[in-house]
Design a protein around this nucleic acid. Structure first.
Lengths: 161, 161
DNA sequence: GAGAGACTACTCGGATACAGTCTGTCCGAGTAAATCCGG
DNA sequence: CCGGATTTACTCGGACAGACTGTATCCGAGTAGTCTCTC
């Protein structure tokens, strides 16, 4: 069970977009160059973000993407679910029902006990992702790690918008 | 991102094996019949459990599988990791390093900030799975849900070992 | 009756096949800004 | 100099292809009990 690499790309792209001046857009081409990813494929991830309403796009020259909401109102979970979908990681196919010793007309009293444990773990994962916003990420990048690279990236982006 | 259905099968099989009399084995054929799964493919999941040391097998007639440890010492995480592998769900490919504005000879100060958030969520998921043991699951099945089906299943299994 | 050999039922592992998803590419349609051209 | 037409640069969406993984089946090798046969 692995998240697709588009999730990683989408997260990094959103981190960049969170630092954009108000009202400016950054093109897919620049995002792809910045991260060394194939432009056309990265575009799929950005389209998913757009479909989920996390980013807004504009056509034409000086077009591209920007965040559709303040960075504080976009969580990691929003981005992961936009790319991966909202389905639970554990699918219960109710194999209980296949039991040869199941009494005739037996009616299940509720969701499979095993599924409930798995779903609770899934929820713990989602809760953790929902607790971190893009604004917090920007703050971490500013303060904690790689301030030089992050600042240089900011200047590089500023030239393009 | 979805867990494979072998994970579901493995969990249900372990729940059955946890109720087995000491020293007795249950054959793949019976486990497959009980859950309505293809025997040969289910066998792959059981082999994975065996490779991880969670279950023990014996050949020959009256052979099959049993738990290799007390049910209280086998967690959901053990089973999930046996089938799915121990890799983290989020793979960081360090796309930071592809940045065209990365200073020459720049040395990363540590793991990617985004990866650290994703890994922390991953850990929350694993912690939750590690907190539930097969013994607890047996207790839940006994007490909370479907006691009729669970008891009937116990009798069905008892005839086979 | 005892021991050796054959038989049976099972696990294990490899080979194979098919479908679906992931990854990646290509191209045409549509759109908004910039540019150009005619009055 | 101004307004409309053209060009340009981008997004969007679909079509397509290759690689990989997940799902599933089949079969032969090996093993541990059981049965049979011979002495």
């Amino acid at each position: 069970m692995q998240l697709k690499n588009q999730v990683e790309w989408a997260l990094h792209c959103c981190a960049i977009l969170a630092g954009l001046p108000d009202g400016r857009y950054l093109a897919t081409k620049d995002l792809a160059e910045l991260h060394g990813t194939p432009k056309e494929y990265l575009s799929k991830a950005l389209q998913a973000l757009s479909a989920a309403g996390l980013v807004a796009s504009t056509l034409g020259p000086s077009g591209g993407y920007r965040l559709a909401r303040p960075a504080a109102e976009i969580s990691f979970l929003d981005i992961v679910e936009a790319v991966e979908g909202r389905q639970r990681t554990f699918i219960c196919t109710e194999i209980r029902a296949n039991s040869p010793c199941r009494p005739a007309g037996f009616c299940d009293t509720g969701p499979c006990t095993i599924a409930r444990v798995m779903w609770a773990a899934d929820q713990a994962w989602r809760d953790h992702l929902a607790a971190t916003s893009l604004a917090q990420l920007s703050h971490m990048l500013d303060a904690e790690l790689d301030p030089d690279l992050w600042a240089a990236t900011g200047r590089w982006v500023a030239q393009r918008v």
